[in-house]
């Protein structure tokens, strides 16, 4: 049976790469995001690349009214088949913009944590009822430790990671797997003009890695793999020293 996938934040580079791979496998795709014109164009493109069906749907992390129609659309497409969901949403305003306007914290936390968490909370009972499915939640290595350059974004992603850990604990009991992904540097719009990037991975490479490991039941995935070791080192730096670093 064809898989049905909800991609939240489907216009992001990583989501688009994953959508292309899933299209090649003949999946049903629900592409959720804000730029409807782009999502409609993507749906046409993915159908030609082999998707059984591809549908654009509006998702705004800050507007909970957009959530239910997405879940309905996925249920219709899936029929008796499984529903999977991958979450790519998040926003990262520059830390100095947040310093100037602390109210930006609300939006950052909604986009990166509470919005998608609320969506998944609505989806969870449907997945439990099906007794199968895969949820891939994209966090960030920035969530592993608060750093001077982006600690609000990091805090939001950290919250999301903790949420996913709890969701995994819950859904695992009914045969639904939840994987937390922590990408390092990926060649996306977010990192395009950031100085000091190294070992940057392509979105296609990262998306393929996620699907492969998620299907094998990995709980937490650092991608590319060596970020696991980089972050192990960063996490092990004692706080009295870490607070003086600018990594």
């Amino acid at each position: 049976m064809n898989e049905t996938w909800i991609l939240l934040g489907a216009t992001s580079s990583m989501a688009r790469a994953m959508a292309r791979q899933l299209a090649g496998e003949g999946a049903n795709l629900v592409l959720a995001g804000r730029d409807m014109a782009d999502l409609e164009a993507q749906a046409t493109d993915l159908a030609l690349r082999g998707a059984a069906s591809a549908k654009a749907a509006r998702f705004d992390a800050r507007d909970a009214a957009t959530f239910a129609p997405i879940i309905d659309a996925a249920e219709t497409l899936a029929g008796e088949g499984p529903i999977n969901c991958a979450v790519f949403v998040g926003s990262m305003p520059p830390q100095d913009a947040i310093d100037a306007d602390p109210s930006l914290i609300d939006g950052t936390v909604t986009d990166s944590f509470t919005g998608p968490a609320r969506f998944l909370q609505m989806l969870a009972p449907k997945l439990e009822a099906k007794g199968k499915g895969l949820v891939i939640g994209v966090g960030s290595v920035a969530g592993d430790r608060g750093r001077i350059g982006n600690y609000v974004y990091g805090a939001a992603k950290s919250g999301f990671a903790t949420y996913l850990s709890g969701l995994r604990n819950r859904l695992g009991r009914s045969g639904v797997h939840v994987m937390t992904v922590k990408p390092g540097f990926v060649d996306t719009a977010m990192t395009w003009d950031v100085e000091g990037m190294f070992l940057v991975a392509s979105p296609a490479q990262v998306a393929a890695h996620m699907l492969k490991k998620g299907r094998k039941g990995r709980n937490v995935l650092y991608t590319p793999f060596f970020w696991r070791y980089i972050m192990a080192i960063i996490r092990s730096v004692p706080e009295p020293i870490f607070k003086k670093l600018s990594v």
């Binding site: 216009t11 992001s12 730029d35 014109a37 782009d38 996306t188 719009a189």
Partner: peptide, 8 residues
């Protein structure tokens, strides 16, 4: 510059 969407 590398636009990711036509809107950009």
């Amino acid at each position: 510059a590398r636009p990711e969407r036509s809107a950009a």
